[in-house]
Simulated scan of single mutants.
Amino acid sequence: MRRRHFIGLGVGGAMLLSAPARAQPAKTYRLGYLALLPGEDKSLAKPLLQRLDELGYHRGVNMILDYRSAEGRAERLPQLAAELVRTAPDLVIAGFGTLAPKAAMAASSKIPVVFTSVGDPIGAGLISSLSQPGGNATGLSGQASDITAKRLQLLEDLIPGKNLIAVLGNPDTPYTALALRQVKTAAATMGQPLVVFEARTAEQLPTAIEAVISSGATSLLLLEDPVLLGAKQQTIQLVTKARLPAIYGARDYVEAGGLISYGPDQRQMSRRAAEYVDKILKGASPANLPVEQPTTFELIVNLKTAKDLGLEIPATLLARADEVIE
């Protein structure tokens, strides 16, 4: 049941306006797409390609797209990035997360790179600043300063009282390191007790969830990165078995059976990334195109999962939801 759907994206000091559909470009462009996660060509890449089509770039007509996926194996990214560079693309699109754009930039400092969703592009060393990236890469960041505080508040709305909340993430990623600092600051301000657990690989998830249960935490906040997102089905199964209410940043988890998510609309971000591609192909420099950060978010609730957990979702929270899955 769709309640409402909107997203706005702010820029560090500037805003890129959505470009109207244009006449088909005369030149044939060659683009590379580098993905870490399996199946990005059937998920995040689809809205990007749809938007490119609307802008006049048609596969097999005036656009060649070389797609490479590491299928979740990060160690394959450098080789795949080198393969893409050898095709002499006009631009490389980097899929979800930080590792794909890092590999693309390491393979070439001259070919423009557009990243579709990086949690902390400054901390990852991809750009100099949001307003002036300064190198050959720019794009979309999925991080906002107050998002973790809002997720904590949503968990408190679900389970009233200052109950212990577990936070689970991969500390090796820049996004998680930044988000963890923010969630600790927010928890201190709210007087919310936290306990933090780590999972660097999918294989570490069962042990981490067992530790969460043993801690006595009544709910879980997951700080997803590409590694953990690639293991979302396993995560959902473990959390469901533990009967642990959990909040996620990506709607994919809720669609897979998770309880609730709050975060940017990744599909809309992918469409915005296509507009960066269009601007760069038409002569803009990535060094001067500000990186966008989200300013509005979508709240997705899975009522079936809530029922299975024996959890009643407050009416006020349901009224705020952008989408309710029944």
Rank of each mutant, 00 (worst) to 15 (best):
P47D: 12
G95R: 04
E298W: 02
R271L: 03
E224D: 12
V114L: 03
L17R: 14
P264I: 09
V291H: 01
G257A: 08
D66S: 12
Q268F: 07
L91W: 01
G249K: 05
I236A: 13
S215D: 10
I7E: 06
S109Y: 00
E292D: 12
A26R: 15
L36E: 13
D120C: 10
D53Y: 12
D278K: 11
Q204S: 08
K150I: 05
G263K: 09
L84F: 05
L155E: 06
Y253T: 02
P101C: 03
M63V: 09
I93V: 12
A21C: 14
N62R: 08
A137C: 10
L164D: 12
S131F: 01
Q237N: 14
V114A: 07
D252R: 04
G249M: 13
P133W: 10
V167Y: 03
L140E: 14
Q182K: 06
T201Q: 10
A166K: 14
Q24P: 03
Y276P: 05
E71R: 07
E292G: 00
R251H: 03
P38F: 05
A74M: 14
I159T: 07
R181W: 01
T98N: 00
T98W: 00
I93M: 02
A208S: 15
L222K: 10
L80P: 09
I147Q: 15
P121R: 04
Y262L: 11
G257W: 10
L318R: 11
L303D: 04
L223D: 01
G123L: 06
L65F: 02
